[in-house]
Structure formats: structure tokens, C-alpha cells
Design a protein around this nucleic acid. Structure first.
Lengths: 132, 132
DNA sequence: TCAAACCCTCACATAGATGTGAAGGTCAAC
DNA sequence: GTTGACCTTCACATCTATGTGAGGGTTTGA
């Protein structure tokens, strides 16, 4: 515990903290979703902020977004947003708008279906009371 | 055009109406998501209500649900809901509740990220006005 | 009767996310 | 110094949703 660069972690700890197999952490790196540093011995060295980032990646993957798109939208999520738009080409912006709209569609579809499931469950609870 | 069973369609028409490859319509049948009748010559014969069903299936697949789960929740979506809960075992209900919760999580995750993308786009629009 | 446009089944291929394990280097503790 | 728990890369396997096409039957209309 010195003053400067404390608090980093290796792959095992990140894996535990995010409940994500090491294999996938390496895969996300290969897909350019995260860019860990390397220690002098070659071990990956993760900034603790990557915990949230990995959870976000997993959530998006779970929601059906492919890594290619996640790669595009991740820069939108960086904390000091003002710093990070170096080269926002019109094509990139159009792509982001399109993806935002598709996300809205997914949300609508999921909401509709989730509500239908909820209604179904309520109907069963009401019209089909447990026999105990 | 007789009196009784009009309005059915073969795979080509359903494919066009739902913008879904024939291959996938057969796949959804194989996965037991839809059950078309068969004409005497062996051709599949689809009820027009399957148009909506197929669109729903595609939406859910696109939202990251595997066919196995879609198969579970589809019965919840049938129109005369009161008719269709023949054997709602407690295990099935628990599974449905669990999946409903996971859908809620997905919705939350997607919403968060979509909002972040929106904010990013607005920030770019404001702080980075187009040079024309 | 022939062609075009449908339909069928079967089967192999692909792409993306993930599982699994081999072969081997590093490091801390005993 | 040896062991055990880490880490590395590489590579092959798996599962799911898809693409693609071969080989062949049916229906309709010229």
C-alpha cells in the first residue's frame, strides 16, 4: 500500500468480484471491451473501475447486444463524459442513434411480455388458488 | 374461399408477412414455439394469428431470451387467458416468476444504458455543434 | 407436357458467447 | 527448493440462432 497506484487487481479477483469466468474477461479484452494493463511479469492488472464496466458488459450481452455494438456504446458511459468524444463522426452518431432506437424497441418488447407474464401469474393466483 | 376455414396461409406468405426467413419458421416449429397444421400434401398451414406470435418470438429472441424460455412464457400470452392454464405446477410458476424478474433486470439494464447513450448524443449535439 | 413457383426434408456450415483443458511461467510460504 | 495457487497462451469443443443448398414432390398456367 504505497501512495500512488494502489487498489489494482489481477484477473482472479476481478473474476470473483464480477462473478465472471476468467475466460470471459480475456474474451472481453480480445473483443476490445476492456484494456487491462500488464504487470512486469505479464499478468493482467485491472483498474477497480472495471468492476462496474464488466457488470455493464455482462448486462448488455445478457440483453442481447453483440460485443460489436457494446464496443460502440461503451465510450458513451465514461464518467467525465465531457472529456471523451474525440472523433464523433456523423456516421458514428447515426449508428448510435439507431442503436438507441433499437434498445428502445427491445425495452418495449420486453416490457410488454413481462407485463403479460405478470398478468398471467396474477390470474393464476386469483382463479387458481393454491390447494393448501 | 369456402365458408369455414378461410384465411390460412402457407410458409411463404407467413415469411413475407413477418419478414422472417422460412428457415426460421421451420426452426421455431422444431423448437415447439409454433405448431402449424399440415395440408393433405404435407405443406405447413398457418393460422393468421401466428403472424403476431412470430413477431413476438422474434422480438424476444432479439431481446436475448433463448427459445427454451420463450417456450415457457408463450402460453402466458394467449388471448383468452382464462382458458389456458391447464397444469400450472408450483415449479412452473416459480420459474415464470424468476424469468419475469430477469426480464425486469434486463429492462432496467437496457434503460440505463439507452439513457446514457441519449445523454451522450445530446452532449455531443450541444458541445460539439456540426461545423456546417 | 413443360416451366415456374411453390413446398418438403436433410444436412452441412457459420458466427458469437462460452466451457474446458493442456503446457508452462511466477510467486509466496513453508 | 519444493509445493500450491496464482497467472499466461493456445486450441479445441459446445450450444444456439442462423445461412445455404441439394435433392425432390406439388400446383398452376402457358
Amino acid at each position: 500500500m504505497a501512495k500512488g497506484e494502489v487498489d489494482h487487481m489481477r484477473i482472479g479477483e476481478l473474476s470473483e468480484r464480477t462473478d465472471t469466468p476468467r475466460r470471459l474477461l480475456r474474451y472481453y479484452e480480445e473483443q476490445d471491451l476492456i484494456r487491462p494493463r500488464r504487470l512486469p511479469n505479464g499478468y493482467r492488472d485491472y483498474d477497480p473501475r472495471l468492476v462496474d464496466r464488466v457488470l455493464q458488459i455482462r448486462g448488455l450481452l445478457d440483453a442481447g447486444l453483440p460485443t460489436r455494438l457494446i464496443r460502440q456504446i461503451l465510450p458513451c458511459l465514461d464518467q467525465p463524459r465531457s472529456i471523451h468524444f474525440p472523433d464523433a463522426t456523423p456516421e458514428m452518431l447515426a449508428l448510435l442513434e439507431h442503436e438507441r432506437d433499437r434498445m428502445t424497441q427491445r425495452i418495449a418488447c420486453l416490457s410488454r411480455n413481462r407485463d403479460a407474464v405478470s398478468e398471467y401469474l396474477e390470474a393464476v393466483r386469483d382463479g387458481n388458488p393454491p390447494r393448501e
